[in-house]
């Protein structure tokens, strides 16, 4: 991802009021991490598993934070259990930021990623997670705010999935 895209993504998260983010780093969007760390507005919490990352984010949301959870496209598989039980069953909003490895527009696609990537959206749909795929920076800030508002309004996780220009 070009540095300017990372800066725009961080700006969009802050503009949407996100102040707490759990994560497992991956390769497409990870440039946001040092920017967020340097900025300090968003409290960053690394997790050992995406399943754990969802639960920590949910706890912070119940405690008054506006939360995001950043993961790669394997994350929805690993976290399906906590997305369903804590995210949907209890009803806690979490903005999911997913690096879409293995997607059609993944510029670094390979045999390692494609099987996982191609089944990720059907997995989100199976879980009933609303999502939007973002492939360029046009209207990025609005997309983030829209997804955050959908998540808050539904009291459920909602996903922004980053491919194309974000997956270089």
């Amino acid at each position: 991802m070009e540095p300017i895209l990372a800066e725009k993504l961080v700006h969009g998260l802050k503009a949407a009021g996100i102040d707490f983010m759990t994560y497992l780093p991956e390769s497409r969007l990870s440039q946001i991490l040092p920017l967020l760390r340097e900025d300090g507005t968003v409290q960053l919490v690394g997790a050992a598993s995406e399943q754990e990352a969802i639960t920590i984010a949910a706890g912070a949301a119940l405690g008054g934070k506006r939360v995001a959870c950043y993961m790669e496209s394997t994350g929805p598989y690993v976290s399906a259990y906590s997305l369903l039980t804590v995210g949907k069953q209890m009803g806690v909003p979490i903005l999911l930021l997913i690096g879409f490895l293995g997607s059609f527009a993944d510029q670094r696609n390979s045999f390692l990623y494609v099987t996982i990537g191609m089944r990720m959206i059907p997995t989100l749909e199976g879980l009933g997670i609303e999502y939007r795929v973002v492939e360029d920076a046009e209207n990025l800030e609005r997309h983030i705010r829209d997804a955050q508002r959908v998540s808050d309004s539904m009291r459920q996780p909602a996903a922004l999935i980053f491919s194309g220009e974000f997956a270089r």
Binding site: F20, T22, Q43, V45, Q51, E52, I54, T55, I56, A57, A58, G59, A60, A61, L62, G63, G64, K65, V67, Y81, S82, T85, V86, Q89, M90
Partner: peptide, 21 residues
């Protein structure tokens, strides 16, 4: 009191709450 509905999730939710508050 808060019930975290399924096994394996309560400690994670507790960590998030402890960080937020």
């Amino acid at each position: 009191n808060l019930l975290v509905g399924m096994m394996g999730c309560a400690t994670g939710v507790g960590m998030g709450l402890a960080l937020a508050l």
